[in-house]
Nucleic acid binder design. Structure first.
Lengths: 361, 361
DNA sequence: ATGAAAGCGCTAACAA
DNA sequence: TTGTTAGCGCTTTCAT
């Protein structure tokens, strides 16, 4: 390990190339007002010295940090991994760095909004999935940089999100179209700081039922913790012990749906013959479980949000209220099928139709 | 949206508090040489002005950026999500920012090593999971900051990793102890830029067989693409059509193991009765599939790497060759069981013992 | 097309 | 305990 030798500065490059630092600066930023020969000399010197511009020094004078910050509830989730993975190359291509603020709990959240460490240290902030208070939003408003809300709709601020009402509406319609009338909706309780669009999804579910003339039944709307097999077993028991149990379950997250299916397999409840299960998200887990689901694309969100950020950084006159609404898609796989004939649950009168949802993929 | 009003500077705070900028600086950095009354005045002024120190300006003089950079092949993986998720709070607590360089393909990789954008923009670099060339390692050596290698052992440089030879050794022993003698090993081919310790794991597998007196058979070592169901079906076919097919399969990644199980379920090959399957990683997917596996902890790696980084940043005299080796654990779940009696595959002569691996969890 | 000089917002001697 | 001063390494007028 070489002892931390000082980094070469522009002055070093300038000296070696026999020019002034101004010329070095102009060359390295690609300004056209440099003669080809001088440019060549400078670039050679810079390469030989392994010179890299100090963003610190540059940003001190330009007022730009060359950094985009993201505020995320966690990094350990399919959603964030996918979203950041499409955001990162986009920023890289624009010569921007990516700064991550992970705020997994209330203490960190409070600290973040109190000190706003991103202030002066980024050119834009992308806020993912948080359900902010008005006060928090107001704090971000005077952060002095464009703030883009992702996976979250915030009135009057640039936002990128999917239409969860429509997503849940279509998902529920899919079940209705299969003949289901007793459709349960399973919500997430106490998510790990993550804010799902739980209310919107419930609303879409209710809208679909209403438009189909199916009465809403509060007993069919339950909530549980995500990724908890035991908790899923409990809600499953609750639902299946209703006087009129559901023939289909719509879980507002794939993880929830999979936890239900896991329990059903264990207890010999046939999916989808006895109960259809529909998820929401289309994360990789859904594919492994052949789960029918409502797909959203976090990578599209990351990309759209990144592009919006770049636009807002460049054009301070750009449209600061722009909303980008991304679509959802119902992906039928093997866990949704036509409802079994009522009062005939053991038998399959509908034959081929009954296994339609399990067609070889 | 308020027009990007200029950020207040220390001079503004100083004026408002009626002191010099030096005093403001000292106060805000928590130096003890400030009288309580003055400190109070300064803090009040800073709060009222919503002042935040410009790291750019500070680092220009201190030579420290207050940032730790991570170089990762992708952000969209269980491993990285988990590792960064434990790294982030640690850095936050130390007042450091987290800068992410995602290098998903060769082009980006080349660009990264050519320009080393982290130079001068971080106080330390954590390199995750890359199988670097000597030249690349050499480039990082003169980056002018501590470089810590994570999930990768690099001679003479600080590294944090698990002992994959031992992990695979123990995993294979688990299968041997269950009576298996025909044990296949499935490798990953052409991973998505990610470098697994494939060779080490294979070595551990071979060591275990050798120490048990089981001859190595090249036909039992196959490779396929991860997360590809179709490709998994092919290697499964290859293995099962051997003259002496394996009774157990050790996949070097959980995803691979799950893909095999998925195909076996589809084709009515009983797991673990007919074939035992063992994975490696213990990612969440393993739990969902009740997969027996060899566990490693990326979150421990993230934490250890972070702590090592902090140490190396502070103590430039610290041990720069320190290696932290983390343990692996065999986690038996429901996909490994004692081998069925040879030539008796249809029957279960071993009764209770045969279903040991599926005991209710 | 190039250079000289000023200054971005801080911190770190050094004085007082 | 506090203030004064001199830069840190760049970019940006303004000259030339």
């Amino acid at each position: 390990m070489p002892p931390a030798q000082r980094h070469p500065t522009m002055a070093d490059v300038a000296e070696r190339a026999g020019v002034s630092t101004s010329t070095v600066s102009r060359t390295l930023r690609g300004l056209s007002t440099v003669s080809p020969e001088v440019r060549a000399r400078v670039e050679k010197a810079a390469r030989e010295l392994n010179f890299a511009v100090s963003r610190q020094a540059a940003s001190l004078v330009t007022g730009r940090t060359g950094t985009v910050a993201v505020l995320v509830p966690t990094l350990d989730s399919w959603f964030m991994g996918s979203a950041l993975s499409s955001l990162a190359p986009l920023l890289r291509a624009a010569g921007l760095q990516l700064n991550v603020y992970e705020v997994p709990d209330l203490a960190e959240r409070t600290a973040f909004f109190e000190h706003l460490p991103a202030r002066r240290n980024a050119d834009a902030l992308l806020v993912f999935s948080f359900d902010l208070t008005d006060e928090e939003t107001a704090r971000l408003d005077d952060l002095g940089m464009p703030v883009i809300y992702v996976s979250r709709q915030v009135a009057g601020r640039p936002s990128v999100y999917v239409d969860d009402v429509a997503g849940a509406l279509h998902g529920t319609r899919h079940l209705l179209n299969l003949g289901h009338r007793r459709i349960a909706f399973v919500q997430t309780a106490g998510a790990s700081g993550f804010s799902f669009s739980s209310d919107e999804r419930l609303l879409g579910y209710q809208q679909a039922l209403t438009e189909a003339g199916v009465p809403l039944d509060d007993a069919l709307v339950v909530s549980t913790r995500a990724g908890d097999k035991r908790a899923a077993a409990e809600v499953l028991g609750t639902l299946l012990s209703l006087r009129e149990p559901p023939t289909a379950v719509f879980a507002e997250q794939d993880e929830l749906a999979v936890a239900l299916i896991w329990n059903m397999r264990r207890t010999q409840i046939a999916v989808p013959e006895r109960v259809s299960v529909l998820g929401y998200d289309d994360q990789p887990l859904a594919d492994w479980f052949d789960l029918s689901t409502v797909a959203q694309s976090p990578s599209d969100m990351g990309r759209e949000a990144g592009e919006l950020a770049l636009k807002l950084i460049d054009d301070s006159g750009a449209d600061h209220e722009r909303h980008v609404v991304l679509p959802t898609y119902v992906i039928p796989r093997a866990t949704t099928a036509p409802v079994a004939r009522p009062r005939d649950e053991g038998e399959r009168h509908t034959g081929g139709e009954g296994t339609l949802g399990r067609a070889p993929s």
